[in-house]
Write a protein that binds this DNA or RNA. Structure first.
Lengths: 117, 117
DNA sequence: GCATCATATGCCGATATCGGCATGCGTCAA
DNA sequence: TTGACGCATGCCGATATCGGCATATGATGC
């Protein structure tokens, strides 16, 4: 019957988790230390359920850890998952300084090659 | 009337563009040099329209440039847009080595603070 | 012009995503 | 136990996303 396949990857990976601006803000805030949900929501101007949902995503990909502290639930940063992304982008470091030199060079080569044909 | 607001950010930023595994593969391949659409599609095992669509997204966020070369259209890498991501993740570099030491330390601080209240 | 190759675009179906809202559940204190 | 607080979850509506397919657009060569 061959159903259409729709979406492939989903929010269960780190790349996707940090594609959301608000989630990036949460991570940035958590660098200063653990924080309860309500405080995060307040500081970032979002609703409490909104914050909880984003935190859930971040927790599922391992960027955030939570622990109970009495009535509250403290969320803390676990940045290890960001390392692969840092390294992946780092693999392009050589290119973002010389991108257009390279392009130009390639164009030159191409013209050369054409004249020699 | 207050309609629901649904999705906030969209595919028009670099974080989102590289959230797609196939788009990351395209970028990785383009490190080796410019390539036409069909070749990309073939090497990555996707359909030509599929490749074209992903390339469109990459082009719209500026990660890829295209130029016409006769019948073909060559796509080339413009990695400058990856730099902000590299730097953003780099802002967490201090944390991904000592994440849990810090957490523990914070817990200690917290206990201290509580006893002193 | 016409056929051909290379690429882009449009439509569709399935599903994922996000925000808002209400509500559930657990914990603490009185 | 009851109430208050902190947080999570569920449901909904609007929209975005992705793959597959057919088709349009564009350039080339005859």
């Amino acid at each position: 019957m061959m159903l259409p396949m729709a979406r492939a990857a989903t929010t269960s990976d780190v790349f996707n988790a940090i594609a959301e601006p608000q989630r990036r803000e949460i991570l940035a805030l958590l660098r200063a230390g653990e924080r309860p949900v309500t405080e995060l929501a307040q500081e970032l101007g979002m609703t409490q359920p909104g914050a909880s949902k984003h935190l859930r995503v971040l927790r599922e990909v391992g960027l955030v850890r939570d622990r109970k502290a009495g009535k509250q639930r403290l969320y803390g940063l676990d940045a290890r998952g960001l390392r692969p992304i840092h390294e992946w982008t780092g693999g392009f470091e050589r290119f973002w300084n010389e991108s257009f030199d390279r392009l130009d060079a390639y164009v030159q080569d191409l013209k050369q090659a054409r004249q020699e044909e």
